[in-house]
Structure formats: structure tokens, C-alpha cells
């Protein structure tokens, strides 16, 4: 269980790191990811960028331990995620690309499920924590609604709020700012940065958002067709000589949101 959260209801989380070693994945012999190795340091904000269909979501699912790699290992805080024990000892949240909200529950119950199931807080504290997470993402009016009554962007925000309530030490975001207006995207970026500042939360963010990558990321990785092309600081990535990386980054700068939105939907 979430020991830190149990101990003193409020915050105090330790930072944890993550290591991907020689990771490969194929679906029915079709390779999706090839021999990926990278390391995310404790308290780091690590952004993975790449074209649609390059395998970013697949990578996140493996980091979260939802699927088993064809090859290689994923080690979080020194423990292999393949071990069933590991997840119980970790405090990790995954924000799904499609939200993955519980459709049978209200927004409030979606957020409250984790603390309730793990008996973290009393009623009042729980309510207060949930409401604060909702307010952070301007969702306080949607607390009683069901996911089917929400817009796509709202669903994504609820998914993020749900991860915040869990107060994890490691958060995996799958395209947190897609489907959101620029102001809301900016808010999300601020939230991610704030979690790191305040609690030392490690973040692994999959995103096409250039603002996000260039403003708060400590390091950026470029993933293309299952291969890791480059891992570097945002400044170095921008100056990259690799034609594919240049090609990938330039259009993003030139042509703005609409294309991303469409791509996000089709993925």
C-alpha cells in the first residue's frame, strides 16, 4: 500500500527513478518497439515525443506493468515491474490516453475509488482532497456527473485529477494536454511542474506538446517507428542534426494544433 500516504495523510513522497533495459515488444511477431534503453532519474520530468503509431502508449503500458515485454526488463525504484510484489510496494499512477474512467461511477467516485479502496483517509479528508484535485482542473461542477456526460477534454482532465488524488511518486502521462485548450494545457503543464517542485514527483510524459517539452522537460526522447532516436535536453534536441528529428520537430513548430488534434483522435 501507499506507505507514505498512510503515515501522515499529507504529502511527503520520496522520489523514485525508473530504468528501461533492452526493451523490445512485438505483437504477433510484428515488432513495435526495438531494443529501447533509457533511464529516468528521481524527480525528473522526462518527455517522450514521436509520431503517431510509434509505440509511445505501448511503452507506457509496459512501464505501468500492464503487459509483459517480449524482451528486456523495466525496473522502477530498483524493483522489476514483472514481479507482482513490485506494484504493491510502489506508488505509481498512469493517465490513460483515452482516460479509462469508470463509466459506472460519478466523477467524484472515480477520484475517490483509490483512497477508499486503500482506506487512506476519513470521509472529510477524502472529500476535501477530491474536491481540491477537481478544483485544480476546474472540474468542481462536474463532480456529480457521470463520464458519459463529459466532453473529451473534461474526461482527460478527470483522468489527470484521478492520478493527482492518488498522490503517487511516479506519474505516467499519456498525452495529457491533447484535446485541451491552450489555457487548460498551460494549467496542466504548471501542475506537472508544481508536483515536481513541491513533492519531487517523477514524471514520464508522452506528448506532442512542444510547449510542454521545451518549458518544463528536463530531458526529451524522440521515438520513431519503434526506435529511440535521441535522448537529450530540450535545448540540445532543438539543435539536433538528425534529419528525422529535425523533420519531426519542424512541422510541429510551423503548423499548429489542428493536425495534432486529428492525429490524436485517429490513434
Amino acid at each position: 500500500m501507499n506507505q507514505n500516504a498512510v503515515e501522515n495523510g499529507e504529502r511527503q513522497r520520496s522520489s523514485i527513478g525508473l530504468k528501461i533495459e533492452n526493451f523490445s515488444k512485438s505483437y504477433d511477431l510484428v515488432p513495435v518497439l526495438n531494443n529501447i534503453s533509457l533511464e529516468v532519474n528521481p524527480g525528473e520530468i522526462f518527455v517522450i515525443m514521436g509520431p503517431s503509431g510509434s509505440g509511445k502508449s505501448v511503452l507506457l503500458k509496459h512501464v505501468a506493468g500492464l503487459e509483459t515485454p517480449t524482451n528486456g526488463r523495466i525496473i522502477i525504484d530498483g524493483k522489476d515491474i514483472a514481479q507482482p510484489r513490485t506494484r504493491r510496494e510502489l506508488s505509481m499512477a498512469l493517465v490513460f490516453q483515452a482516460g479509462a474512467l469508470f463509466n459506472s461511477m460519478s466523477v467524484f467516485d472515480n477520484l475517490a475509488l483509490y483512497p477508499r479502496e486503500h482506506r487512506l483517509y476519513d470521509r472529510a479528508t477524502l472529500r476535501q482532497k477530491v474536491m481540491r484535485a477537481l478544483e485544480t482542473l476546474s472540474l468542481q461542477d462536474a463532480a456529480k456527473k457521470h463520464p458519459s456526460q463529459l466532453s473529451g477534454g473534461m474526461r482527460k482532465r478527470v483522468a489527470i485529477a484521478r492520478a493527482l488524488v492518488m498522490e503517487p511518486e511516479l506519474i505516467l502521462y499519456d498525452e495529457p494536454t491533447s484535446e485541451l485548450d491552450p489555457t487548460m494545457a498551460a494549467t496542466i503543464i504548471e501542475v506537472i511542474a508544481d508536483l515536481r517542485e513541491e513533492f519531487g514527483v517523477t514524471s514520464l510524459v508522452v506528448s506532442h506538446d512542444r510547449d510542454l517539452a521545451l518549458t518544463i522537460a528536463d530531458r526529451v526522447a524522440i521515438l520513431m517507428h519503434g526506435d529511440l532516436l535521441e535522448v537529450d535536453t530540450p535545448a540540445n534536441i532543438k539543435r539536433s542534426e538528425n534529419p528525422k528529428v529535425k523533420d519531426f520537430l519542424n512541422p510541429v513548430i510551423d503548423i499548429k494544433n489542428p493536425r495534432f488534434k486529428k492525429k490524436d483522435y485517429s490513434s
Partner: peptide, 17 residues
């Protein structure tokens, strides 16, 4: 099946439930 297909079950697993 719906929960599984729409990743709600995965969400539960990541929540350690």
C-alpha cells in the same frame, strides 16, 4: 468486457486494486 476493452480494468490494476 466493456470495462476491459475500455481499459477500466487496466486502470484498476494501475491503482493497485
Amino acid at each position: 468486457a466493456t470495462m476491459k476493452v475500455y481499459q477500466e480494468v487496466d486502470a484498476l490494476v494501475t491503482m493497485n486494486i
